[in-house]
Amino acid sequence: MTEAILQAQGLHKKFDEVYAVKGVSFDIKAGEIFSLLGPNGAGKTTTISMLSCLLTPTEGDAKVDGFSVTGEANQVKQAIGVVPQEIALYPTISAKENLQFWGRMYGLRGKHLQERVDATLDIAGLADRADGKVETFSGGMKRRINIAVGLLHNPKILFMDEPTVGIDPQSRRRILDTVQELNKLGLAVLNTTHYMEEAQELSDRIGIIDNGELIATGTLDELIKMVGEYDTVRLCLDVDGQKIEDVIEPLKSLPEVKQVSPGEDCVMIQVPDSENILGDMVGRVTQAGAHIRSLEIQEPNLEAVFLHLTGRALRD
């Protein structure tokens, strides 16, 4: 068993009487990719901010590389690379000048700085655009430089707060590949996301966070076991004059159905073996006078886990 590079113990953060994070504890082992998966406002950024010494926990503490985030901030900051949710770069100077500036802020100088700037430009795949001003870059390129800055000082663990939000699929693919390559070289990663596919594909272990609480932690397999052998059926209706509520009771009355969760114009139904019951479900819905727009069967996945644990869909 490898040693933990990060241990969060009962982290709480209160903003004016309201807890944004309440009692988050988890470990990240050296060389591991850990994802915090949760919807908007779940407390992901707040958690990462406490772990990167930007916010002081109202309660609890965390150790990074053996140093306390509350008492040994400078050592913690030296051990972590932080990739913020927003593009935190100077737009009017070049990619290279940005990296040089941020490198100097990490205390890098001279030849070593030059080497690290070149290395991180390579990782970002932007060596040929090094002298271009950041403001002329595409969203994906900016994200890559944003990540490169977090890697300048060879951190032991990289914190990434929603690194793939709002970019095209190719750039996203590239970033995920890069993170995996770096991870193979031994870098531990704490990633936050609200894309279950990303958490699923990237992570060694996943923590599901909702309303400031970590409601489940484990590998993908461990988490999926929590929902047992259930499939999720996603059934969407034509809404014209039709109320979702009208179909919930008929569906619930089917003996095999474990859970029905209503959304805007779709319902998520959890059943052990969807194929045998599909006909009955369609029958009940049609009897209730509703028109089915689409019907989709999902294998057990994180979406289902989230649904199972919270009764709500991850994406609303």
């Binding site: 990167s52 010494c53 930007l54 901030a73 400078n74 050592q75 900051k77 030296q78 972590i80 932080v82 913020p84 949710q85 927003e86 593009i87 935190a88 770069l89 100077y90 941020w102 802020m105 990490y106 205390g107 800055v149």
Partner: peptide, 11 residues
């Protein structure tokens, strides 16, 4: 824009 925040996570 967040660059100040980034400066704050530097040692």
């Amino acid at each position: 824009e967040g660059t100040l925040r980034r400066l704050l996570v530097m040692p």
